[in-house]
Write a protein that binds this DNA or RNA. Structure first.
Lengths: 216, 216
DNA sequence: GTCTATATTCTGATAGAC
DNA sequence: GTCTATCAGAATATAGAC
């Protein structure tokens, strides 16, 4: 394909490396679903290849090996997390900030359930491939946000609770709707979670968290 | 072994099938940890055998095959869940009932983290081996407890919230401390969760849930 | 860049001695 | 009941034609 750039005049919206990116993305998408469902060890290259509708050998052309592919999927997922993490900014009004953060987290669960499940599976397995991320970006982010809560508590804007537990509760509650979907569907007698049902869940969580923390 | 009971007079504290039970339990325990860490597909009989310190063939002597072993582990786990589930009885005072239930759930997460993780992994994978349980015991239990909440709401003992979301929030928050332990340890700068730290977490959850639901 | 064929290792399961 | 040896199939990964 690179030859086309040098031997022919490019016609149409051709971009160098476009096919490469497309193929990579296709494989990454299939791999995310497979890893999310079966974990690193349980996932097979064969199934990923079938799901992505490419020959198995092509995966090895784009990614060094199974671990390399997993790493690439994980990196994609972490980038998505980070954008949601940053929603929790140091605004003045805790009700507004936390409300928007809970909405953002729930929206992420709804639109990226595979990413949420992949992350959960990795955590449950002891996070063997996430130690670098956890020790660096995550650790820093967590400490910064903790100080925001401490500030609110000092200003009597919320109850004197350990902020860590509040954050854990928000994460646990919002991720639950993606990770434990089978349990939720049977409990609610439905076959799929609608956008409206997600919104109702978000409202319940916001009610309990905000009121429970003495905010507003 | 049964022959010994009929052909000889039993001496000492011998019980028929005792060795059998011991070996079975040893294998089940190792299998629970392995399945919890790597999921059904990711777990290997070899690793389970090594962890249980028995030859691989012995596992096939006690259990029909990998799926049979997994089913036995899952059944063990579900029995444990059920005992905790029943803690949420129809007592009159919601603060007392929910408080004790949250304590019981947190205690379960602390003392049976592998069981919690196994259950979580199965759910994230779409609960392919739990459909019978979910459709029967769980479904019934959930509906019964929902009606208790509805009763409390009618009596103005708590806010008018969808009880399902309250239960999901309790489950999510309490299980999080077992399932997402790596994240918690790094956030709290500790190497293991003490019993005291679990109690603090339980207190925070109780504070937020009870106050957030307008109970007490 | 793509794909078929294959090398090599590993996994679940069994046979059969003890 | 226990264990060694081993099979058939599946897994990751690579070689090499196109």
């Amino acid at each position: 394909m690179a030859n086309r750039m040098t031997t022919h005049i490019s016609r149409g919206p051709y971009k160098p490396g476009r096919i490469r990116e497309q193929s990579r993305d296709l494989i990454l998408q299939a791999a995310e679903a497979e890893f999310a469902c079966h974990g690193f060890r349980g996932a097979t290259m064969q199934r990923i290849a079938e799901s992505a509708q490419v020959p198995k050998a092509n995966i090895h052309y784009y990614f060094s090996n199974k671990l390399g592919l997993y790493g690439a999927v994980l990196e994609n997922t972490l980038n998505l997390w980070d954008t949601v993490f940053n929603e929790l900014s140091s605004h003045d009004d805790p009700a507004d900030v936390l409300g928007r953060y809970i909405d953002a987290k729930m929206n992420f669960s709804r639109t990226n359930p595979s990413a949420s499940r992949l992350f959960a599976k990795e955590m449950i397995s002891g996070a063997p491939h996430l130690s670098a991320y956890l020790q660096q970006d995550y650790r820093l982010w967590f400490k910064q946000r903790m100080s925001i809560f401490d500030c609110w508590i000092a200003q009597k804007k919320m109850d004197d609770l350990d902020p860590a537990h509040v954050i854990f509760m928000i994460w646990a509650s919002t991720q639950y709707y993606a990770d434990f979907e089978p349990q939720i569907l049977i409990a609610t007698d439905t076959q799929s979670q609608s956008e409206a049902s997600y919104q109702q869940a978000a409202n319940s969580i916001k009610h309990i968290i905000l009121k429970g923390c003495g905010i507003g």
